[in-house]
Design a protein around this nucleic acid. Structure first.
Lengths: 361, 361
DNA sequence: CTGTTAGCGCCTTCAG
DNA sequence: CTGAAGGCGCTAACAG
């Protein structure tokens, strides 16, 4: 690989001019600039990012911190972030905190961050005080998605409002016996979407004058499998809910599965609502509260780049509109009505869901 | 952040000794080593990766190249790769080639790679000759997953064998009218799992003396939605298949969806098999040919690290067993029989699938 | 607008 | 086993 001085020699200018011309900073005579560009091109020259970082103190790398990356929300957000970063010549470094055991996660360390990234985006990962202190010590700009981090901008949806919308929808259909799937054990809460949705559920229920049956509030690890397994006992008794709200679509699919297995028809015997608008929800015709995860990723990246590029001459992306007090951006959610919710005891009014019996039609 | 010379001063040794002690290379007197470690620890010292890279010529970063990352296969492999990398103090840089339009992808460029990564793992992305030449020029070690790259090690499953197993299973159940979902348009083939599975299907069919109905060979973009949409017309005619093999589980779920909508019962009227053992396949009780994507990611990372660390004193991971002629590692697949396949015209023999009617039981 | 000159912080010979 | 010293390739003042 050629170096900057070879390009300088080939173009008949100094290395400083090459550096300036290639980065498009300062004012370089158009003529000489073209000459530099031509020389660089011909020599396949690309500035060494590591040398540039060492000299400038900036890496043009952003770390994406996740508690685990294989779930829909996380990878969708990651992908969206990467798209924005690369448009500004930034790169994405994976910082996956997943540990072997599901109840814990690895800590964020000096080693992972120091001189390695210019900034961080956390995807739904609450940080401990010592980790926050580390970020402060490193003077790293951080933008959080989903989970607030004290002192840093946050991009999120209104979880309580989303769940309220779902409950309103069910109540409007005549349901009063409503279950909830997606509570989390206290000791695992640090790695799951916060209890905001559950609190919203309780709040919405009492707002409608309804009581929450605690044995219809199901705790699980937020996978479809576990949701199915833990929800099964609910249908083994006489007194069963007529509707279930799942805190994610994947869990909702698990609920649908176990309900069908228990001999229930959806939505005639049981209505199911999820949250997310997961990529398979359309196919299984699941009623859900949709959120735009890609938009959340875009927004978080734009906010971070704005501060990262703010004081340079690089064009920083505009701050997304709606950034409350420049700290919190709340993106909207909306009800997507499909086939898994129906009026209580009047099934004929709604078409059968995918998971319902085709012969019912 | 402190520098190496501050640590050296604190420990009363030279910077060279600090460097050696911290990296555990060469032989350093245990006493002085401990002193260095203590000093470094106390100063929160972490060697600047960029300075280290500039001086050593190595980055300890591996690029993960994907055509898009949000699909199950890709993110599962990525996650597995990252786990192995971090155990050896390597980091993962995302190189996502996804373009705006679904029919093309971005090229792999000098800019993305030069001096930025020590090696590359490609996840099911065929490279063009000019891209391969670039890798050669950069002298970058590469390991491919899924799609072969001439001259580089490959980790894969035997797609033809997987599909053969599926066809054998269906034939054994008495099916002869078998459809296939998951062909790809020729102009998009460069970004999708290769036609190996389709070829395997045709081969298996003729091996059983069966003819392939071309109008039952469905082309789609490998999403559940598109599979559902494109497969729908198949059920609008009189002559329909009694079984469908989908080249992925997500597509299989799309097929199940549209079949139910068309009034078919699974498996009584239609058997469905997928390939992957996707994380939701268990929940929807889909019969499938399973593959271990995590194992593929682990193996690819181990092979790459072996060459990256081979000539240093760092302990390189052992090469996975089964690496044929040190170039190709083929991981096994196996039939997972669940509820979506049944004997032709004798539905009572099998329990209904999740998507079948519960009242049929 | 362009050239000169110091470093950026570390690794790596080479001596000792 | 340890120290000294020269880069690695680039950026960022500072002059001109």
């Amino acid at each position: 690989m050629s170096t900057i001085s070879e390009v300088a020699r080939a173009a008949g200018v100094s290395v400083a001019t090459v550096s300036r011309a290639l980065r498009g900073v300062s004012t370089v005579n158009p003529h000489t600039r073209d000459r530099v560009l031509a020389a660089a091109d011909q020599l396949h020259y690309v500035a060494s990012p590591t040398a540039a970082s060492l000299a400038s103190g900036r890496t043009r790398v952003v770390g994406i911190v996740t508690p685990f990356m294989t779930r829909w929300f996380f990878v969708t957000a990651m992908s969206a972030i990467e798209k924005v970063l690369r448009e500004h010549d930034f790169h994405a470094l994976l910082i996956d905190l997943e540990a072997d055991d599901m109840m814990s996660r690895r800590p964020l360390t000096n080693q992972m961050l120091s001189k390695r990234v210019d900034g961080l985006i956390t995807i739904t990962v609450p940080l401990r005080p010592d980790e926050l202190a580390l970020l402060q010590r490193l003077d790293l700009p951080v933008v959080a998605i989903g989970n607030p981090l004290p002192g840093h901008p946050l991009v999120r949806i209104d979880d309580a409002a989303a769940v309220h919308t779902a409950v309103d929808h069910l109540v409007e259909l005549g349901h009063t016996r409503i279950g909830y799937v997606g509570a989390v054990p206290p000791d695992a809460e640090h790695r799951l979407v916060p209890g905001g949705r559950l609190h919203g559920f309780r709040d919405a229920m009492s707002g409608h004058g309804l009581t929450v049956q605690e044995r219809w509030v199901i705790t699980c690890d937020w996978t479809a499998q576990d949701a199915a397994r833990r929800t099964a006992p609910v249908f083994d008794t006489d007194h069963t809910p007529t509707a279930i709200l799942a805190a994610s679509d994947e869990m909702a699919i698990g609920v649908m599965s176990v309900a069908i297995t228990a001999g229930l028809r959806i939505p005639q015997d049981l209505s199911v609502v999820g949250v997310d608008d997961y990529h398979l929800s359309d196919v299984v015709r699941l009623t859900t509260i949709s959120q735009d995860v890609t938009a959340q990723g875009h927004a978080a990246a734009a906010i971070l780049l704005h501060t990262l590029l703010g004081d340079t001459e690089s064009p920083a992306p505009d701050l997304p509109a709606g950034l409350t007090d420049e700290q919190t951006l709340t993106l909207p959610t909306s009800l997507v009505r499909r086939a898994t919710t129906g009026r209580l005891r009047s099934a004929a009014a709604t078409p059968p869901s995918l998971l319902g019996s085709p012969t019912d039609r």
